[in-house]
C-alpha cells in the first residue's frame, strides 16, 4: 500500500482555513464576553455568523476527510504517541462540532435567531429556556477551554515533529 507524502490540497485548505477561523473565533469569544466597549455588538454579530460558517465548514471537512488516504504517522513513532495523536485528532473534531452547535443552541435558548449578514435570520430551535441556556452556555465555555488545550498540544506536537524529530509529519500539512 502506498503512503502519500502529503495531505491533498483540499485537506490543507480546510486545515489552514479553519485554523485561522478557529483561532480568531476563540480570541473574539474570550474578549467579547468581557468588553464594555462599543465594538462588542459587531463582534458578537460576526462571531455568531462565522460560527454558522464554521459548522458548515467542519461538516464539509469531515466529508472530505473520507475521500483520501492520510499520510501515515512515522513508523518509528512510539505506540503511546500514536495513540495520543489519534485521541487528540478525534477530540479536535468533536470540539469543532460542539463549539458551533452549543453556540447556536445557547443563542436559541435565549430566544434569539442568528442574523446572516442581514440577508436572513436563522430561527431559534425550541422554546426559550434559562436552564437550557445555562447548559449550552457553560458547555460552550468548557468546550472552548478544551479546544484551546488541544490546540496548544496539537501545535506543540507538530513543531516537535518538524523541529526535533525532523520527520515528514509537519511537511505533509505545510505543502
Amino acid at each position: 500500500m502506498n503512503n502519500p507524502a502529503q495531505f491533498p490540497l483540499s485537506a490543507r485548505i480546510f486545515h489552514w482555513g479553519m485554523a485561522a477561523l478557529i483561532f480568531s473565533m476563540l480570541l473574539a469569544g474570550l474578549s467579547m464576553v468581557q468588553t464594555l466597549q462599543a465594538w462588542h455588538a459587531p463582534i458578537v454579530a460576526a462571531h455568531k455568523f462565522f460560527g454558522v460558517l464554521a459548522l458548515i465548514a467542519v461538516i464539509a471537512r469531515l466529508a472530505n476527510r473520507f475521500r483520501f488516504k492520510s499520510p501515515a504517522l512515522p513508523a518509528d513513532l512510539p505506540a503511546a504517541q500514536k495513540l495520543a495523536a489519534m485521541v487528540t485528532q478525534a477530540l479536535l473534531y468533536i470540539c469543532m462540532f460542539a463549539m458551533p452547535i452549543s453556540g447556536f443552541l445557547m443563542v436559541s435558548a435565549s430566544g434569539q435567531g442568528i442574523n446572516m449578514l442581514g440577508l436572513f435570520t436563522l430561527p431559534p430551535i425550541g422554546e426559550p429556556s434559562l436552564v437550557g441556556y445555562s447548559f449550552f452556555r457553560e458547555l460552550h465555555a468548557i468546550t472552548a477551554v478544551l479546544l484551546m488545550l488541544l490546540i496548544v498540544m496539537h501545535v506543540t506536537a507538530a513543531v516537535y515533529h518538524g523541529l526535533i524529530r525532523k520527520d515528514n509529519l509537519l511537511r505533509s500539512m505545510l505543502r
Binding site: 476563540l26 480570541l27 474570550l30 474578549s31 464576553v33 468581557q34 468588553t35 464594555l36 466597549q37 484551546m148 490546540i151 496548544v152 501545535v155 506543540t156 513543531v159 516537535y160 523541529l163 526535533i164
Partner: peptide, 28 residues
C-alpha cells in the same frame, strides 16, 4: 524553542481571557 511555541500560544489565549488582568473595565 518548542517550549517557547507552547508558551506563546497559551499566553495569547490567557491574555485574551483576561488572566493577566484587563486594562479596561470588564462586564464581570
Amino acid at each position: 524553542a518548542l517550549a517557547g511555541v507552547a508558551a506563546a500560544i497559551s499566553g495569547v489565549f490567557l491574555y485574551a481571557g483576561g488572566f493577566f488582568g484587563n486594562s479596561q473595565l470588564t462586564a464581570q
